[in-house]
Simulated assay, not measured.
Amino acid sequence: MTQHPMPDERRPANDGPKAAARNRAALVTAARAIYAEQGLNAPLSVIARRAGVGQGVLYRHFPDRAALETAVLEENVREVEQAAADERADLPTVLAVLTWHLTESAAFIGLLHADKEGNRSQIRVHAAPLSERVERAVRSHLPDGHRLGAANDLMLAVAMVSGAVTGPTREGRERRALDAWRLLGVEVGPVRPFVV
């Protein structure tokens, strides 16, 4: 049975650009959650449904899968950069934020390993600059002579830790990540997202 609005009921106003910004933010939030649960290969229809929009709206904001993945991963990278730029930051604090993202997001781990994935050429194009930004942010806090200071050692250590981040619960993944950092002889602060 079709319900028709009563004469005194009004349709919500079209918010135009406000709705577009809201829809984009909802899509990025939904994609972040879905990618954390299912990885980068999650169906786009699931993301649109979680965001409460149609797939047409998704494609209006993100013309392809790589554009959406990049938008989500950009947020992860930006938070690591913000943590590194904080005047109170030190290496353990920045590594703690990085570790939080590793334990929260299979997509973020995928970003750090994108150069090794043979079938993900679109995200690989975007992954290299994002990965380099993560490296710069963390490297800016490496003291002279630190064990991870050699050319490739820092990102190799991050890749090794991300490889240890497995398990069905975030708490279990965090425990494994911290164990991996400990085995590498690297101190990490309390694992949490960066909050301004």
Rank of each mutant, 00 (worst) to 15 (best):
Q38P: 00
D115M: 13
V134Q: 07
A85D: 10
A51T: 02
D15N: 04
A67V: 07
V125I: 14
E79T: 12
Q122F: 10
A106C: 02
A30R: 09
P190S: 10
T2D: 04
S45Y: 08
R173E: 05
P43V: 00
A150G: 13
E104I: 01
A180T: 06
E81M: 08
L58Y: 05
R120V: 04
P190R: 11
H126Y: 10
G163R: 01
H141W: 07
E75K: 13
A83H: 05
P129Y: 10
G56C: 02
V191M: 09
T103Y: 00
A48V: 08
H4P: 05
L178P: 06
R50A: 14
L102V: 15
L183M: 11
G39P: 10
I109D: 04
P43I: 00
A107M: 03
V46G: 01
P92V: 13
E135H: 07
V161S: 01
G52E: 00
V158E: 06
E75D: 13
M155L: 13
G189A: 13
A48Q: 08
D153K: 15
G163M: 02
L112S: 02
F194P: 02
L27E: 01
I47M: 09
A71W: 03
R120M: 04
L102E: 09
E117H: 13
Q55I: 09
K116N: 03
V161W: 01
H61L: 03
V80C: 05
M6Y: 09
E132A: 15
T2G: 05
H146S: 03
K116A: 13
A106R: 14
L111T: 05
I47W: 00
G163K: 02
Q122V: 09
D64W: 01
E171P: 02
R49L: 09
Q3P: 07
L154A: 08
L102G: 12
R133F: 04
A151K: 12
A84C: 07
N23R: 08
A114C: 00
M6H: 14
G110S: 11
P143T: 10
E69L: 15
L73S: 14
Q38Y: 02
G145T: 08
G172N: 06
A96F: 11
V195C: 11
